[in-house]
Design a protein around this nucleic acid. Sequence first.
DNA 1: TTAATTATTGGGACCGCTCCCTAGAATGAA
DNA 2: TTCATTCTAGGGAGCGGTCCCAATAATTAA
Lengths: 342, 342
Amino acid sequence: MKNKNIDIYQIAEEAGVSKSTVSRVINNKAGVKDSTRNKVLKVIKDLNYKPNSSAKGLASKKTNTIGLAISDITDPFFALFVKGAETKAMEANYNMMLANSHWVVEEELKCIQMFEEGRVDGILMISGGSEKRLNNYLNNLASHNLQIVVVDRKIDNDKIPKLKADNLDAGYRAAKYLIDLGHNKIAHIKGEDVASSDASRDRVRGYKKALAEAGIKEKIIYPGYFSRIEAERATKKLLQEHPEVTAIFYSSDMMAIGGLKAIKNMGLKIPEDISIIGVDGIEMAALMDPPITTMAQPSFEMGYQGMEKLIKKLEAEAVNSHNQDIIFKMKLIERASTSSLS
Amino acid sequence: MKNKNIDIYQIAEEAGVSKSTVSRVINNKAGVKDSTRNKVLKVIKDLNYKPNSSAKGLASKKTNTIGLAISDITDPFFALFVKGAETKAMEANYNMMLANSHWVVEEELKCIQMFEEGRVDGILMISGGSEKRLNNYLNNLASHNLQIVVVDRKIDNDKIPKLKADNLDAGYRAAKYLIDLGHNKIAHIKGEDVASSDASRDRVRGYKKALAEAGIKEKIIYPGYFSRIEAERATKKLLQEHPEVTAIFYSSDMMAIGGLKAIKNMGLKIPEDISIIGVDGIEMAALMDPPITTMAQPSFEMGYQGMEKLIKKLEAEAVNSHNQDIIFKMKLIERASTSSLS
DNA sequence: TTAATTATTGGGACCGCTCCCTAGAATGAA
DNA sequence: TTCATTCTAGGGAGCGGTCCCAATAATTAA
């Protein structure tokens, strides 16, 4: 019933050459007379032959696919990241396996394990999980010969290149921006409460640094857990407990959006009464009323370059020059949610 | 230098059995004494052995991965769809390859071709491309033994199960809802201009049907190309040319969001002056000011069930009962962007 | 207890492709 | 024209599993 797929032997026979020659042609290797090559190429085309990737992978130990592990594809930041990674992968003729960890470490682990079965040549991972598992990655890299590139993750292994946004700088500049506008009662809604997100922690540090530099003593920080809903609640609480606040720096745009709602609901005006600024640069922030000022991350670029670096490592083998980390600066996008203190 | 991966032979030797027995254990097949099984299992665990998927794929003609072809991962609707599909895949222990076609047919084709190299057991595809390529899918399914499930795509092949949202019904109910609110000057911003999107076309038909039923003669339709920006423009034009309009039905939430901006910019109020309703049910629509009423698609569910059907087909082989199509009804979510005509 | 069954294992032929090694063809030098 | 070189092309041994079939061990029936 099932249609047998054509294999390299059939091409060889049809073209009147050996499978070795066909293999050379497929892989574009030297040592084949042009006339022979063309003949084979024609047969391949005519029969619509597609080399079996499992066989190829088995024989060559190269699958030409890379595994991408992320936390949540519905998060606009990740989505853009994936798009960037995918774009580069396509360009370089790589396939991409996607695994969503839904923010839970167990699933993250499950993903990596799937990748370990020799399905991929390398792994690009971006996630904000706990540090505890880092050992595993070390292990994986060591025991299996998988190349790994991580994004926004602290890991102590110089074989693993790291890309990251400069979160400290982003936090610093966001707060500084508010300060320069004349604010001095500046609150911060941070991401995580516990120490599981480097990004959040660094942004908090940046915020503190800017305030310290400006001689502002009071640091008002509430946790928003990177959740819009939580941030909405936190904002309400914050504003009740600190009615003197005139500006809020949110560790993500989604949280800023939640905050915006809370602020409006309290009858306050943005930016007249409260200025708000977020982080991420997702499209949604620009569509709010008012559009929200933000520190934008180059998500697409991060995905693209992460994939690029991974592929380079894969293809360059020994060259160790590909192991330096890449730091991305965020970009301030001024919109109508912030204004100077009048 | 490279660490040789352990293979089935090493497990066999270590456990003092043959590779056949190890294979049986791995695949959980009957005919192995419990004591033997446990012994092998222990060795596998101790050595952290992971069967090579390429070898497995080659020998068994089963990769346990499915290919997902979508148009744009950064579109919230697709993202949720992917999440649903991914969730089901994980549950069933399948891997997922992701391919983004960026809305261009050429890339869509490229994706399929990658999938054809025996990397996947089946393809789940959702896209609004042109019909012209359908032949290819027929071909692919016929010549290679790939299972295919399509979403929101018209294709004349009863071997290919189709899932789709009931777009006609959605268009009908959206318009009907507006009519029931007392509106009778109802415009529609449709998706595509050309005949390339079934979804858009069906929604237009539903809109027309509702108006016809209500005895409303004048049908005001402008193209919005499923683009926020375009819809913003179209809305402006529409309102200039038809100032009598009191309600607009957009073929997508993103377009409704664009429209909302245009309407506000023209100094009109929503819903006092103009009621608007979208389609999709993306989170963003709920966050606008005012929150936008919409016909929500069960995107996650569609992804989940699409994947489920595909996997069932894969594992049931001959059983043809898995070929019926699945139709999803959309759900009206009333929000503040619509109100009755006063 | 012994023959007849049945439950467990081992052996070996592929799966479709890569790659090393060798043989034969073509080309160039002497 | 002959011999040394350089090109091309073919042969065959894996890669790490699956799976059918035969062999051996354990059970059961007679």
